[in-house]
Design a protein around this nucleic acid. Structure first.
Lengths: 201, 201
DNA sequence: GGCCAACCTGAACCGTGATTCACTCGCGAA
DNA sequence: TTCGCGAGTGAATCACGGTTCAGGTTGGCC
């Protein structure tokens, strides 16, 4: 049978899926979620509109998965830094923030879409979870730092969330008036890292 | 002529307008922007759907104006605190944050809709401007504090924005899991105020 | 080479909800 | 009392864009 299990066909299938996800990312980065119509994504991916529904049950699912991928990649970077041994908690907090901001400013405006632009409850849910996951990393670092006596007692939950909010807002603001700040990328990252370090001290 | 300039008619006009704006606020607070259909707002305001368009050119304009009103009220509170004489800049920064957070947590979930829920580019624009205006207040306070030697030199622009992001995120997070934190209102406000004070020091 | 299943296609469909518009109604002036 | 103006009405219209599906195409197997 000329079935899905055929390696050639399976490869094509998987490739289509990847291309559609990639197209979703590109379109979102390029035009924002608002302009991200299924037909446009399909065109960019080089498939027909209907083919999108062969791989994803709905537009929302497609974008939710795309967003999840992107967020997980960034989250992994932050988690890796958070887990580095032999460094104080505040030190790692600063490095996490700096790395995240620097990476986001380096990329296209995908960061904007991912962080703030809305689209659908299902997608918003993913964004919410990603923010919560980031906040959890910082909350854990704060708890660690307090336990080690490197930081004063504080509400780690609230402050973890506040850290995420602080650098995302700083980030989005910098993205907004890019015309003024194109070279300051590293400076913004460092400034936000210091801000967050000071905030927990 | 039986024209608009008639006091009775003018009063009715103005009253309808006010009622529609009020209804928009109520519906948004109650159901969120997502469920805020023009027909629903009209029903709550006690007018016909079409009448909404006698006062506002579009749904987006209606909600943009509603949002602008709400934001301006909050902004006025923050500005008043920022202008209080005889207090150090960091002191006022903390009080501004505390007041904003406390007021937002006291109100209904309008705060959520206003801060993060998306709806339309025109509305988003208002939100963006409101955030920028808030950030500007904090930036000015930081500049003042640095000039007075109460704060170390820093990028006031970036940190002003970061302050806004920090407490809004802390706020939204607290709103999200309200079940856990209903009594902590004041505590959250104080924690975020301390966070922001520390961040600029 | 012939056959069939599964894939791909994209134009048509459909639900949703903003916007419109032909009409009614109430008010104030003559 | 009657007339004219313009606010008020709400059902019909319209645009939009996600989703479907009836047919064409492809690739593997006998």
């Amino acid at each position: 049978m000329p079935t899905t299990s055929s390696p050639k066909v399976a490869a094509r299938l998987a490739d289509s899926r990847r291309r559609i996800l990639e197209a979703a990312r590109v379109v979102a980065a390029d035009q924002g979620f608002a302009a991200a119509q299924v037909a446009v994504v399909a065109a960019v991916a080089g498939v027909a509109t209907g083919s999108v529904y062969r791989h994803f049950p709905s537009k929302a699912s497609l974008f939710a998965e795309m967003l999840r991928d992107v967020c997980e990649r960034e989250l992994a970077v932050v988690r890796a830094i958070a887990a580095e041994p032999g460094r104080s908690a505040p030190d790692r907090i600063g490095t996490c923030v700096e790395a995240f901001v620097d990476r986001a400013l380096r990329g296209d405006n995908l960061a904007y879409a991912v962080i703030v632009e809305p689209m659908d409850p299902e997608v918003d849910q993913v964004r919410l979870e990603a923010r919560a996951a980031l906040a959890a990393v910082f909350t854990a670092l704060i708890v660690e730092g307090v336990a080690a006596g490197e930081l004063p007692p504080q509400d780690a939950q609230v402050r973890g969330a506040a850290i995420v909010g602080a650098y995302l807002e700083g980030l989005v603001t910098s993205l907004a008036d890019r015309a003024d700040h194109p070279p300051d990328r590293a400076a913004v990252a460092v400034e936000l890292a210091r801000f967050c370090q000071g905030a927990v001290r």
